[in-house]
Amino acid sequence: MDSISYYLQTVLNGILAGCIYALFAMGLTLIYGVLNFVNFAHGELIMWGAYFLFLFMGEPFGLPLYAAIFPALALTGCLGLAMDYSVFRPIRRANRLTLLIAAMGLSVFLRNAAQFFWGAEVRTYGLEVTAGMRFFGLYITAPQMAIIAVTLLCVAAVYLLFFKSRLGKSMRALSDNLDLARISGIDTKRAILAAWVISAVLAAVGGILLALDTNLSPEMGVINLIKAFAATLIGGVGNLWGALLGGMLIGLAENLGVLFISPGYKDAVAFVIMVIILLARPYVIIGERSD
């Protein structure tokens, strides 16, 4: 491999990682925007989405991949709704710390539940490993092309939904000011439910793509969530474009970083970026929003 394609391959690796982070970050930022808290159980939606696909592809369903995706996404959407109904709705008006702790507790519960059903061992969908295709000296596999294509599709779909539909408008109104939205006669309940479904489906899409590209494990969500969180912070919390941009930036920064510093510090790149932003904008986790 010559040195130009060596760097280009690294950039591609960064984009792939970035796509996954961006999908996670978009869901995270959406819930933050609408409900004004960081859903630390988002990682478990990612993981359960991937495991739901595993469920439908295995016995007794035995569906092929393309058919199993739809019930898996639907079930993850339902899980999102169930999370809201059972945990977050009763404490909708509670302060942020309560919501944060509830989300963390839910995260641990869902992770252990997955481990109870599927065990702690790492699994795969059992698809054949294939060598990547070669374009201009770069290797890319089918799941990786899917990652890029699906991310673009999701971004487009979310854009249309958010800026071109009534539902999206009501979600944005909610995000700006909950009480004002309510007074203006916006169906806030419907908008909140929609936000949960979209956030959960985005998480499932990301989780499935990640699992297709690597493996499934009960820890897969929580490990990547911190990166997604950093991505939302970079992009400005509640900002969808920001989430996309933040995800890409972190993916690229940590991969390009590996070429120059010891890869042992790969995670540090994301954390350093996150810490700097938290220092600059601490209200994201602890304080009130400026509005």
């Binding site: 690294t10 490990i223 991969n255 790969k266």
Partner: peptide, 12 residues
Amino acid sequence: AYDEKKTDYRTE
């Protein structure tokens, strides 16, 4: 050197 538990080791 690389960390445990990662899902992406491509650049390493």
